[in-house]
Amino acid sequence: MVLRHEQNRPSEAAGKVVPSGASDRLQFHAMGTQCEIQFTAPDEATGAAFGREAMRWVQQFEAKYSRYRPDSLVSRINAAAGRDWVALDSDAERLFALADQVYVLTRGIIDPTALPLLRIWNYQTERPRVPDKAAIDEARRKVGWQRVRRENGRIYLPEAGMGLDLGGFGKEYAVDYVAEIARRHGIEHVLIDFGHDVRVNGRASDGSMWTIGMEDPGRPGTVHRRLLAESGGVATSGDYIRYFEAGGKRYGHIIDPRTGYPVSNECLSVTVVANSCLEAGLLATTAFVLGGEEGARLIEDYLGAEGCIICSDREYQTRGFYRYVV
């Protein structure tokens, strides 16, 4: 995700509520990325209470669902693959029920069981390599959300080597949940930015609509367009930052579980504006995998969503995307 909220960022230590003019700014690191919340609270006590609850919830969410935490629920489920059922509380049952909807909405492109493929296409190692076809075929055989068995209060991965990774929608879900925490605290004006997955409500501290910059995939770090929003989510999917090269070919970090290979099409980035950050993120990633023309149709057909797909040779926009462009 490559969105930038265009305001000056302070240098104060992460994890503190920092006064910023008429608004507050909370910064911390979680889920492998920098997180920032800008908000205007009705009073100091409300702002402090919101900040504490938001940080506490994010920390608990990561501790429970990150596959990188050896003691997390997800890690315990993965370790028990092919052997044992693992108990779920009501919160986890709701999240995995959401995963059912994610899988259907994205046509199986965002598959929470894609971990075997993510492991063999590990671009984060010091010397990434292209796995051979046999390894890819073996990993693909262990991928398939429809194979996961769930009963009331428990879950089971039926084959050793299967594994869950909720990175396809977990961060976006967290952004929306923090927006709901803000609403419960009576905070009407808020921007939540977790690694450039964004959700906004209300207005910025100066009364203007929130301004969000779309990064130029051809020139990372520069703004391609500016978007205005006062409610909903904005997310971008692209692989022009995270990739590796081997044998003269470029391999991005977004894997298509249907083929077992990184996406290789004309798309450079997809930005979606939707009613929630979760919807925006799911549509952006799915459209990126589908490619320009089919991806644009997917976004166009989704109620309440607009998008822009930047390809190597052209650009696709849905009919109403222009309404968000400054």
Results as ranks from 00 to 15, higher is better:
D197L: 06
F288D: 13
V272D: 14
A139S: 04
F39I: 12
Y173W: 13
G51M: 04
R319V: 15
T40L: 12
G260A: 05
F39Y: 15
S23N: 03
L268V: 02
R203D: 01
A160S: 13
M162Q: 05
F96S: 00
I309F: 01
A45K: 08
T318D: 07
E230A: 05
S237R: 11
K171H: 06
H253C: 05
A139M: 03
F39R: 11
Y68C: 04
D176H: 00
A49G: 11
G252I: 07
N275K: 08
A305E: 09
V143K: 03
G252L: 06
D132Q: 05
W121G: 00
T46R: 14
G21L: 01
N265G: 12
D91Y: 11
E151L: 13
G144C: 06
Y156V: 13
P220E: 02
T236H: 12
C311V: 01
R149E: 15
D24K: 10
I310R: 11
C277D: 01
I109D: 00
Y316S: 01
T40Y: 07
R129N: 09
P112Q: 09
P158I: 08
L228T: 09
Q146R: 13
G248F: 05
L164Q: 06
V143Y: 03
S264C: 10
L3D: 14
L98Q: 03
A296N: 14
E172K: 02
R226S: 07
W210G: 01
K142S: 09
A79N: 04
D239G: 09
G247H: 08
E293A: 11
R129I: 06
L227S: 08
W145M: 08
A48G: 06
P220Y: 01
V2Y: 13
L73C: 15
V326T: 12
E6L: 09
F194C: 12
M55V: 12
I192A: 14
H253R: 02
Q317M: 10
G167N: 06
D216V: 00
N122C: 10
A235R: 07
Y65N: 00
K142Y: 11
L117I: 08
C277H: 00
W57L: 09
E12A: 15
T271F: 07
A135E: 00
G161E: 04
G248L: 05
N275W: 01
D176V: 00
A296E: 14
Y240K: 02
H29G: 00
A305H: 10
T222C: 13
F321K: 08
Y261T: 10
D165W: 12
I254N: 14
P220K: 02
A135S: 01
V270L: 01
L278D: 07
G167L: 06
A92I: 04
Y243K: 07
T106V: 11
S208E: 11
R149I: 13
P158H: 09
H185P: 03
I187S: 05
R297T: 06
V190W: 10
S208I: 03
E126R: 14
Y261G: 07
E230R: 08
A49K: 12
Q60A: 15
R150E: 09
R76V: 08
